[in-house]
Design a protein around this nucleic acid. Structure first.
Length: 568
DNA sequence: AACATCCCCAACCGCCTGAAG
DNA sequence: CCTTCAGGCGGTTGGGGATGT
């Protein structure tokens, strides 16, 4: 950050005169390039850490002139800092009533809750934390993410989930005309859709009966999100975020209600084996031979990025568990750039909801219960405590990935991990040195963060009136034919004997468009843009059942207009 | 003690948005 | 309507302290 340390830095005795006489202490950084976009020619601006003298100047200036007009600071004070830098310094360090020091457990909890609702909306989160800056919160969260990753901890502790869940329940109550919803359904402990698998999603009306009980916020978050999200609230924190950002265009959902689209898609995926191989599902099938349905990693990722990855079939409810993936419990009202994630539990499991990324690897309820985390401790400590439980539980019942009571799902963001997904996940985790081995449990999230819950919306959730099968095919073929990602044929028929391809990561759908090859992401973005018929961020209007066209504002109101019971 | 690695966080960067001309 | 500017936001960087070997 500080390419050249400024002279006198850190020296509180540094005199203003020093600065004035040699304002370009940071000659390298400030000299090269444009110091600031808003500045034209002029004396190079200083960069790097602020000195106490500079702080004093800035504070004095603000006292006299108030905040704002930051570019005038330099003119009026001779401070060789750009207005932007001044503003940041003031906002983050100099302004009064700033709280310094570590976050309190309460603050930590609030941050987590807020993040669950807002995603990476640091400024908005900071508004809820008096005295704290967005930068602080952001740094805290990034640190937390890393810690959780290392410890294989859920990002959202159970306590937060439960609380959010309760809040959500209230909304849901309103959503349901004031009728309270069972805690069993909405609590972080047990929000699940019993016996609700993709296989029986349609066939089992009872399963659908649960749908309306999903909280309004959950649904709204599921649906009321912008489809152009560059805010991968969580996964931006991990290394693969880059590829997600590349794929800034996301689809909220794919409805196989558009039979034409899906049938067209099936022309790819129905060459199923080929495609699955291409998308890296093959080995997952092998790993999970006992599973009747193919729920490869990609299916676990279903939703959104499944589509992004070209795995259109993933949106089909008939293959693998239906999953509604939503990133964080983003604020539907104001945060259109996020996604909640939902997954429907497979019938064979108690169908607890587990978010593959919200929830750390594996744990059994029993184990968890034995390791109740201390609620009075800080959240990180709590998480650490949970980590121990999770790890011990993993050894005992590696195949069971049920969410524990603390099954860290931010309430409405709960996700059910299918056994199939587990298999896939475990596969990744077993790959030494594999990127996914470490982040396997995040991977699902990683995409859902930036991509919409396609499969979640499964069958009759949406219709993309603007997407024709031809467009879909075109988009797919466009991406598939990208030179950077290899020919379409290669994509469909990965050469396993190749030294480069055999690795699962190379076969993963998302790998085709991102991660190792950032150029692919843009290509796919283009494809998506093409598919949408507009720019990547172009608004498109999904159509609900009766031809109700949803504009962007409509999405935000989805929870009220959206009755899952109607999706049958 | 020396070195390597990890981690925190202040600051920068690029992008976006809204206001003003 | 277009351009410019200022402010704001989120992501990233990298210095330096802490910790581990």
């Amino acid at each position: 950050m500080y390419r050249v340390k400024s002279e006198g830095e850190g020296d509180s005795e540094m005199m203003l005169q020093d600065q004035m006489d040699s304002p370009v202490a940071d000659d390298v950084s400030s000299g090269g390039g444009s110091p600031h976009p808003h500045r034209g020619a002029g004396p190079p601006l200083k960069k790097g850490p602020w000195t106490s003298a500079e702080d004093a100047i800035l504070v004095d200036y603000v006292k006299k002139h108030g905040e704002g007009n930051w570019n005038a600071v330099q003119k009026n004070t001779g401070l060789f800092r750009c207005g932007k830098s001044c503003r940041l310094r003031w906002a983050n360090h100099l302004r009064p009533n700033l709280k310094k020091g570590a976050f309190t457990p309460e603050e930590e909890r609030l941050i987590i809750q807020l993040h669950a609702k807002m995603g990476n909306k640091w400024a908005r989160m900071a508004a809820h934390l008096p005295g704290r800056t967005d930068n602080e919160i952001k740094n805290y969260w990034n640190t937390r993410i890393k810690r959780c990753q290392r410890a294989s901890l859920p990002i959202y502790p159970a306590s937060v989930c439960n609380q959010s869940s309760n809040e959500d329940q209230q909304v849901s109550g309103d959503f349901n005309g004031g009728e309270n919803i069972s805690n069993d359904l909405l609590s972080g402990n047990s929000l699940y859709l019993p016996d609700f698998t993709s296989d029986n999603f349609i066939a089992n009306p009872e399963a659908l009966s649960y749908a309306p009980q999903l909280s309004a916020v959950s649904i709204s978050n599921l649906l009321g999100q912008s489809f152009a999200s560059k805010n991968c609230s969580f996964m931006d924190q991990v290394d693969q975020a880059g590829m997600l950002k590349q794929s800034s265009c996301v689809l909220p959902a794919l409805s196989d209600a558009i039979d034409g689209v899906l049938s067209s898609v099936d022309q790819f995926s129905n060459e199923s084996e080929k495609l699955k191989q291409a998308l890296g599902f093959d080995y997952l099938n092998e790993a999970n031979a006992s599973s009747k349905s193919i729920a490869p990693f990609g299916v676990a990722l279903t939703g959104s990025h499944a589509f992004l990855n070209g795995n259109f079939s993933a949106s089909r409810p008939t293959n693998g568990p239906l999953k509604m993936e939503l990133p964080s419990l983003q604020d539907t009202e104001s945060d259109p750039n996020s996604w909640l994630k939902y997954t429907v539990a497979p019938a064979m499991q108690p169908t607890e909801l587990v978010d593959p990324y919200l929830q750390s690897p594996s744990a059994t309820p029993s184990v968890k219960s034995e390791c109740a985390s201390p609620r009075n401790s800080g959240l990180l400590e709590e998480l650490l405590h949970e980590a121990q439980a999770l790890r011990s539980g993993k050894n005992q019942q590696p195949s069971v990935r049920s969410s524990s009571s603390s099954a860290g799902t931010p309430c409405e963001t709960t996700t059910v991990v299918s056994p199939e997904f587990d298999m896939g996940q475990e596969y990744w985790e077993e790959q030494p040195g594999s990127f996914l081995s470490e982040y396997a449990h995040f991977s699902g999230n990683s995409f859902t963060e930036s991509t919409p819950p396609v499969s979640a919306a499964s069958p009759d959730f949406f219709q993309f009136s603007k997407i024709s099968p031809a467009q879909l095919l075109e988009a797919y073929s466009f991406a598939a034919q990208s030179p950077s990602m290899g020919s379409g044929e290669q994509a469909l028929e990965p050469k396993h004997e190749s030294a480069a391809s055999p690795h699962p990561e190379n076969l993963r759908p998302d790998a085709l468009f991102s991660g190792n090859n950032t150029a692919d992401a843009s290509i796919f973005n283009n494809a998506i843009a093409m598919l949408l018929g507009n720019g990547i961020n172009a608004e498109y209007k999904p159509v609900l059942g009766d031809g109700i066209v949803l504009d962007s504002s409509s999405w935000n109101n989805m929870p009220h207009a959206f009755q899952m019971a109607e999706f049958k």
